[in-house]
Design a protein around this nucleic acid. Structure first.
Lengths: 340, 340
DNA sequence: TTGAAAGCGCTAACAT
DNA sequence: ATGTTAGCGCTTTCAA
C-alpha cells in the first residue's frame, strides 16, 4: 500500500500543507507535530513520488551545479557527456544543470566556482576538486546544512558528503600491474611517469601497481619515478632524460595525463624496445594503442561517473535517498586494441 | 517553449481528448483531423511528459514482459538484477515487470511464454530467444502492430523490432584473441570448447577470436573444436577426450557455459601446462580465475543489458523514442584477477 | 501555526 | 466523432 502526503496527513490528523512543511524542514510547525509526522513518515515508509513532485514544481526547476577542472583536459569530455545525458534524461522531471568548468587546481578558483554555483541557486553540487583542508571544510559545512555534495571523479578524503562517484584508483593500479605481469615476456625495468606526487589518485595508482606486481612475485624493478605535471611537453623531456640515463628501461607506466608526450619520447628512441601502459581512453592514447606503443589502457567509465553523479544529486534533492549513501565506484576497464 | 497536449489542442483547434486519441492511435477521429494533429505534433516537436503520464495512468500500470531462458543458467542472474533495478527505479513512474523464466531453447516453450506475457497485458516485451524463422515472424508481426519488442542478450537476425540490447559477440571473441596474443609466451595450441555450433553468439565468438589472432599474425593453431551443449558434465568429458588425444594442447577457449566442467578436466591432468580463457563473470569462472586455471574472462555487462532493455521498453511505451532505434551494445569487458 | 485550494500534464470516463 | 471533466501526488499561495 503506497504512502502519500495525503494519507500521511490523514494518519496524522493534519492537512497536506503541514505534512509538506515538515517534510521539507520549512518550519512554522509545532515541534510535537513535527516529531509526530516525521516518525509516522518513517514508520509507514513514505517515499515521495517523483512524478507528482516534478509536475507540481514545474516552474521551480531543480538546479544541479557541476564543477570540473576540465579546461584543457580531454579526459573530462566523457564525464561531461554523462552529465548532459543525465540532464536530458531528467529534463522532463524538472532538472536543470549548471556546468562550471575551471582550469587547473587553484584553491581560490575552486572556492569561487562553488560559491558561484550556490549563488545561482543550485540545490546540489557535483564537484571534482582538491584534496585539501579548505575544501574539506567547505564541503563538510554544506553537508551540515543538509546540502547534498557529490564528489565526482576525485575524492576528498574524510569530507562529509553525500557520496563519492568515481573510480577506485588502487584497483586501477593493481589491474595495470596484473596485466603487465601477465603479458611480460622478460624482466620488467619500469619507469614511472606520474602527474604529480601531490595528487592522491596518481599515488594510489602507483601503490596498487606495485602491490599487485609484488603479490604475483613478478620479476620487476622500478628504475625511476619522474613527474610531468600532466603536461605533454614536460613528459617528453623527463622521459627522454630518464631513458638516456637508464639503458635498461623497457616499460613506462604513465599514471596521469602527458601520455602523448611519453609516446613522443618513445618514438624518439626507435632502437630501444620500449612499450608504455596508461590510463583513460582519450584520443591520443587510442592512437598510441593502435600504433602499438601503448600495450593496453585501463579506463574508468567517465560517462557513467558524470551520469550517476547528476542522478544521485537529483535523487538527493527529491529526498529519494538518505543524506549519506555508499560511494558509486565505476568498473576498472581494460582496453586493448581489439575492444577499444 | 514546451509543447503540451493542451497547447497542441489549441493549435489544432480541437479538444485535449481528441489529441490524446490521435496520439495513442485509439481511433474514432476523422482522418483529416488525425493527419493534422500528427503533423502538427511532429512539427512543433511534441514530447510527452513522463511525470504527467505517470500520474494520470497510475492505476493503469505500464506492464513490461521479460522472457529469459534463465532456468539453470547462472549467467542470467546478472541480467535479472538489471531488470529488477530498472523496475524499482521506474516503479513510481507506473512501471510493472512481468518476468517469465523458461528452461532451454524449445520453440514452443518460447512461443507459449510470449503469448502468456501478451495475455497478461504487457505493453512491450524484452526477450532472449531463438534465432529461427518462427520467432523472426512472431516478432516482426508484433512490430507491424506497433508493439515494441526488445531483443535482449541474444539477437534474432533480421527480425523487425525496436532494437537489440546486448553484447557484440564478434568483438568479444576478438578481445579474447587479442588478449591471448598479448600474453602468449609460446606457440598456442588451442582447443575450442563451444556450447553449440548452432548458436550464433558462440560461432561469432569463434570467428572474432580467429580473425584477431590472424590479424596479429599470432603463432597459433586450432587443434580441435568440440561441443559441450553448455553442460559441465559433457564439457569435462569432451575436454578430457580431446586433451588425451592431443598431447600438444596448451590452451582451451571456452565460448559458452560449461566452464566449470572444463576446469575440472584441466585439474584432472595436473601434469599438463594448460590454461583456459572464457566468458562472463559467474561464480564458477571467478573461482577458476583465482585458482589460476582461467587466465582472464571477457564479460558483457549483463546488468546493464537487463536494465536498459526495460528502460527502452518503458520509453517506447510512453512514446519517448521512435518505433526503431539503434541497438544498445554493451562494452566488452576484460577481467583479470586484479579487477574481478 | 495551520488549512484549503489551485494547478502542473496527462489519461480515461463520461457527456454531448 | 468530439468535448468536458475529474483526478493522479505534490508544491505553493492565499486565507484563516
Amino acid at each position: 500500500m503506497k504512502v502519500t502526503v495525503k494519507s500521511l496527513a490523514q494518519a496524522a490528523g493534519v492537512s497536506r500543507g503541514t505534512v509538506d512543511r515538515v517534510l521539507h524542514n520549512r518550519g512554522g510547525v509545532k515541534p510535537d507535530i513535527v516529531l509526530k509526522i516525521k516518525s509516522l513518515a518513517k514508520e509507514l515508509g513514505y517515499v515521495p513520488n517523483r512524478a507528482g513532485r516534478a509536475l507540481a514544481a514545474y516552474k521551480t526547476p531543480i538546479k544541479i551545479g557541476v564543477m570540473l577542472p576540465s579546461i584543457g583536459n580531454p579526459f573530462f569530455d566523457g564525464v561531461i557527456d554523462g552529465v548532459f545525458q543525465a540532464r536530458d534524461e531528467f529534463a522532463d522531471l524538472g532538472v536543470e544543470v549548471v556546468l562550471k568548468e575551471v582550469e587547473g587546481f587553484d584553491l581560490n578558483t575552486h572556492l569561487n566556482a562553488i560559491d558561484d554555483l550556490l549563488f545561482k541557486g543550485c540545490k546540489a553540487l557535483c564537484i571534482s576538486t582538491l584534496n585539501i583542508d579548505a575544501l574539506r571544510k567547505k564541503i563538510s559545512d554544506l553537508y551540515a546544512k543538509h546540502f547534498p555534495v557529490i564528489l565526482l571523479n576525485t575524492n576528498v578524503e574524510k569530507a562529509d558528503c553525500l557520496c563519492y562517484v568515481g573510480s577506485d584508483y588502487l584497483t586501477a593500479g593493481a589491474t595495470c600491474g596484473g596485466m603487465l605481469a601477465m603479458c611480460a615476456k622478460e624482466p620488467l625495468k619500469v619507469l614511472i611517469v606520474t602527474g604529480s606526487k601531490m595528487i592522491l589518485g596518481h599515488n594510489q595508482r602507483i601503490d596498487g601497481f606495485k602491490s599487485e606486481l609484488d603479490r604475483q612475485q613478478a620479476e620487476y624493478q622500478i628504475i625511476d619515478t619522474v613527474e610531468c605535471y600532466d603536461s605533454d611537453i614536460k613528459a617528453t623531456r623527463v622521459t627522454l632524460d630518464a631513458l638516456d640515463r637508464n639503458e635498461q628501461i623497457n616499460c613506462i607506466y604513465v599514471t596521469g595525463a602527458g601520455v602523448q608526450g611519453v609516446g613522443a619520447a618513445i618514438l624518439a628512441r626507435p632502437k630501444r624496445k620500449i612499450f608504455a601502459i596508461a590510463f583513460d581512453e582519450v584520443y591520443t592514447t587510442k592512437e598510441l594503442v593502435k600504433q602499438g606503443i601503448i600495450r593496453f589502457v585501463v579506463c574508468q567509465q567517465p560517462e557513467r561517473q558524470g551520469y550517476h553523479a547528476v542522478k544521485r544529486a537529483y535523487m538527493a534533492i527529491t529526498n529519494q535517498i538518505p543524506e549519506h549513501v555508499d560511494d558509486f565506484i565505476t568498473d576498472t576497464i581494460i582496453k586493448i586494441e581489439a575492444n577499444l
